[in-house]
């Protein structure tokens, strides 16, 4: 399933958070949103998720306007993982993932076999089956991130939007999280992430959308888009490129001479 923004903008009072963004987030790919702080990454992600309504233009899934979808229907098709996944309530991982079934359950329903099955499937796909009985308050950052992704999968949606999924994670947990997203994309999921680490973008994303002051500056494969001029003009830094042993490009940033 693909998500599209069509000339979408969001204005709060006199401030334009984003303006005139047209973007397609395609299935089986990781689309990364990058840009300096305040560029509108998180806003664009929330417009794509249907959490916020654009004040101009529109957001759609498979051509259907998100504004016309009820919250529960939306929740079955698109899931969103906020940046802060710290959970201070001692739910077990399975309880947490079962919450992904909420949009499928009636008011007075208890979860049934179909829900148990969906949860088991989601736990397996996110590789957290062995953590099912653990309390989320006792997990490492990477484990918790995977548990939250499992909850997204349990909704049955095949579109997952994540705001800074690697923020505050140790480096091995960053790799753990991005590897999981990579494998989900490989199995056909539509993934969009807001990310500030350009090296992670270069290495893990299929498509990168560069935002600056609320406008889309460029969009395409990282190797083409993240050229020296663009990085210099958007981020205000100079880039030096080196090639890692596995052939992937690595960027080193230098302050621009003033």
């Amino acid at each position: 399933m693909s998500l599209t923004l069509d000339g979408a903008g969001l204005r709060i009072g006199p401030r334009h958070l984003v303006r005139d963004v047209s973007l397609e987030v395609a299935p089986a790919r990781i689309t990364a949103l990058v840009g300096p702080n305040g560029a509108g990454k998180s806003t664009v992600l929330r417009l794509l998720a249907g959490l916020w309504r654009p004040t101009s233009g529109r957001a759609a899934i498979e051509g259907a306007d998100l504004a016309h979808l009820p919250r529960r229907r939306l929740a079955r098709r698109i899931s969103f993982v906020p940046q802060e996944t710290r959970i201070d309530i001692p739910f077990t991982v399975q309880e947490l993932v079962m919450m992904g079934r909420h949009p499928h359950l009636g008011r007075f329903d208890a979860p049934g076999p179909a829900d148990d099955e969906a949860v088991a499937g989601a736990l397996a796909r996110a590789d957290v089956t062995h953590l099912a009985d653990r309390l989320v308050t006792e997990l490492s950052g990477g484990e918790r991130r995977r548990a939250v992704i499992a909850r997204s999968l349990a909704t049955g949606s095949n579109v997952i939007l994540l705001d800074e999924p690697t923020a505050n994670l140790d480096i091995d947990h960053v790799i753990e999280t991005l590897t999981l997203l990579r494998s989900l994309a490989a199995s056909g999921a539509t993934i969009a992430i807001a990310l500030h680490d350009l090296n992670a973008v270069a290495r893990w994303a299929d498509v990168v959308a560069v935002l600056d002051t609320g406008r889309l500056q460029a969009c395409g494969p990282p190797a083409e888009v993240l050229d020296d001029d663009l990085v210099a003009s958007v981020f205000g830094v100079q880039v030096e490129r080196i090639t890692a042993a596995d052939g992937s490009p690595t960027l080193i940033f230098h302050r621009q001479p003033r």
Binding site: A49, A75, R76, I89, R151
Partner: peptide, 24 residues
Amino acid sequence: ARWYTRDLDLLLLGEETAASLGVE
């Protein structure tokens, strides 16, 4: 209270998460 039991669980996870899981 019974009507919105599960919603209350979801609200414990934060408003945005709750909304993204279908809670009004």
